[in-house]
């Protein structure tokens, strides 16, 4: 049997919308005579995902991530192309398919607002036809791990955003899906809650070998969870490969920063590495080729009164920022590689 869980070929989705000029006149005009525009949200998208992978789906707002997620989960129907998930075509919305997937949306609640989360869970137990035993084991495990045992019987509207998100996760994972789609699961959460969610997802993955697709604007999520990244720009795939390779997409230089106990005057040695000094010249960021890192750092430590130094924690953040402000870089990179 094939190990592929998700297979996408030339997937395309177009949206038709109409333009409306401002004001009452515009409203009337657009009522009688609508000018339609077609927007390609996703265009000729190809992807293969193996069982048990965790994939980070990244891209700026409006790049087509959510549209992809909606097609993956069968919420919307693709305009063209092929898409199978676990052998199913999502948009046929077969019950067998629905029982195997889960979608968690950070921006949208699936729980019922006016009742405790436990009531929603019990409903989902029936929806997914889980035995009492399965239900209890999984619920206990997740509630314990997320630290929300005491909150199960509190009305959802009284929970904090972080607590609610944990409940949302539990609700989506009760039926032990084969494929999980996490659409910005940590959006708006504080750092501790973000970390809790990440640890939980990792633990769940380790225990069940689930395939996970995650979108997020927080690079910490990606760093902690994903080995493989898929980058989407303007509806097309811009990068697909391992995280480490992505980090080095702009070259294999490392960013290192040094703080000094006193002002450092002109210094050719440091300036040579694309140095960015602060106003008082007691802090500098430099970019050093990976192979020179040890040597250069040692020299600076020896020669100057360094009080603190660190290497960049999340190079991926810088790469993303550069690519988002200047997507051209990526095209050039690819051309360089292919030539």
């Amino acid at each position: 049997m094939s190990n592929k869980v998700i297979e996408v070929t030339n997937l395309t989705k177009q949206f038709k919308s109409y333009k409306k000029k401002p004001g009452i006149k515009g409203s009337i005009q657009s009522f009688f005579n609508r000018e339609y525009t077609t927007k390609k949200a996703v265009h000729d998208f190809n992807l293969e995902i193996n069982k048990g992978e965790i994939i980070g789906l990244l891209g700026p707002n409006g790049a087509g991530k959510t549209t992809l997620m909606k097609m993956f989960t069968g919420i919307i129907v693709p305009s063209a192309g092929e898409l199978t998930i676990n052998g199913h075509r999502p948009w046929e919305r077969k019950k067998d398919f629905k029982k195997k997937i889960a979608l968690v949306m950070g921006q949208k609640s699936q729980l019922w607002w006016d009742i405790p989360a436990m009531d929603s869970f019990l409903l989902l137990q029936k929806f997914y036809e889980l035995s009492d035993q399965e239900f209890k084991t999984r619920l206990d495990y997740m509630a314990e791990l997320l630290g929300v045992v005491d909150l199960l019987h509190v009305h959802v509207r009284k929970l904090s955003l972080g607590e609610r998100m944990k409940m949302e996760l539990m609700a989506s994972l009760l039926h032990n899906p084969d494929v999980i789609f996490l659409d910005e699961p940590t959006i708006g959460l504080d750092l501790v809650a973000q970390e809790n969610i990440r640890e939980f997802v990792l633990d769940f993955h380790k225990k069940n070998g689930t395939t996970i697709i995650i979108t997020s604007h927080y690079m910490a999520d990606v760093q902690a969870l994903c080995k493989r990244l898929v980058l989407i720009f303007d509806g097309t795939k811009a990068y697909d490969g391992p995280l480490e390779k992505f980090e080095k997409i702009l070259g294999n230089e490392k960013t290192v920063s040094f703080s000094f106990s006193e002002e450092i005057g002109g210094c050719d040695f440091i300036d040579k590495y694309d140095a960015k000094w602060n106003e008082c010249r007691n802090h500098v960021d430099i970019r050093v080729p990976e192979e020179e890192l040890r040597e250069v750092s040692k020299k600076i430590l020896d020669l100057y009164p360094v009080i603190e130094f660190n290497t960049e924690k999340m190079p991926i953040e810088r790469v993303m920022k550069t690519l988002m402000t200047n997507p051209e870089v990526l095209r050039q990179q690819r051309e360089n590689l292919s030539s």
Partner: peptide, 10 residues
């Protein structure tokens, strides 16, 4: 847009 949730439930 809440029907998204229902489209996912069996």
């Amino acid at each position: 847009g809440r029907i998204s949730s229902y489209l996912i439930y069996p």
